[in-house]
């Protein structure tokens, strides 16, 4: 299938893009396009205008500053994959990256696009939540920062307003006591996972504290597993699995019951990763 007709405009600045969004309520932003283009090609979405933000300067880049890793909205997955900054200061992202799509997809797909699209089965939204990161957004009323916990609102629904553009993702930089874990179960490499888990914690003696578990593929948004976090902090892995209060729906790949079981398996595997001493 071919896309339904639309107009195309390459925005030269954020202000221009924001203004275009205002003038064209059913316009869509085009960043990496690796999810959007597929929906356009299948005529599942038929916007009147595509606003290409790829030419806007200053939205790329990955930097370590003031205790945080700031990832520009247009940084490509490949940029993150190869970034020494990510490897050193955002190890959870580094762990997640190889699971995302395939090389040609990662060459084009952007981290900002993934967070803005907020696919509940995608890796990066869960990582953002697990790391308690935040996103910068800019709209007609100016800039604001949204905490990950306030950002994911529903199925493909975020706190971004209709005229707001995600400009950057900010993650707390890892410190010596940071522990991260990541695992997912996808039937084929690079596919969306049946269920996945991104986790962060801080070492506390031989135990853990500030455990944050973010599941993906089990609900309308990435989901925290609060009860399990507390149990894991106590070192009680069985308790953590028992406390999983997920209620995933059946989908094409697995029933809710299977997903829930697999969520428990992942919890044990990720817990083991969190307990590992860093090299």
């Amino acid at each position: 299938m071919k896309p339904a007709p639309f107009a195309y405009k390459k925005a030269r600045s954020l202000d221009e893009a924001i203004a275009l969004l205002g003038e064209n309520p059913d316009a869509r932003l085009l960043a990496g396009g690796q999810s959007l283009m597929a929906t356009l090609n299948m005529r599942l979405s038929a916007p009147s205008l595509l606003i290409d933000i790829n030419g806007i300067g200053g939205l790329g880049g990955i930097a370590h500053k003031s205790g945080a890793v700031e990832i520009g909205a247009l940084a490509r997955h490949t940029d993150a994959e190869r970034s020494a900054t990510i490897a050193q200061h955002a190890p959870l992202i580094a762990r997640a990256m190889p699971f995302i799509g395939h090389p040609a997809i990662r060459n084009r797909g952007t981290l900002g696009g993934s967070i803005a699209f907020a696919d509940p089965a995608a890796e990066l939204p869960a990582c953002l939540l697990a790391l308690d990161g935040e996103v910068d957004a800019q709209g007609p009323k100016g800039k604001r920062t949204i905490k990950a916990g306030d950002y994911f609102k529903g199925l493909y629904e975020t706190a971004l307003g209709p005229q707001e553009i995600l400009t950057a993702i900010r993650l707390p930089a890892a410190s010596a006591d940071t522990r991260v874990g990541f695992a997912e179960l996808a039937r084929r490499h690079g596919d969306y996972a049946i269920v996945g888990l991104a986790a962060s914690a801080r070492a506390d003696g031989k135990g853990l504290k500030d455990v944050r578990l973010a599941y993906f593929g089990v609900g309308n948004t990435p989901l925290r597993a609060a009860g399990s976090e507390a149990a894991l902090a106590r070192g009680d892995i069985d308790g953590a699995v028992a406390a999983l209060d997920l209620d995933p729906h059946d989908d094409i790949q697995a029933t809710g019951a299977v997903k829930k079981h697999l969520a428990g398996v992942l919890l044990r595997r990720v817990a083991a990763q969190l307990m590992e001493q860093r090299p």
Binding site: Y8, L30, G33, M37, P103, A104, I105, N107, R108
Partner: peptide, 18 residues
């Protein structure tokens, strides 16, 4: 699969306009 600006991409997930 083809190359755009030196890296491989999906030709169906980019617009010519881009």
């Amino acid at each position: 699969t083809m190359r755009v600006d030196g890296v491989i991409v999906r030709g169906c997930l980019m617009l010519a306009a881009q």
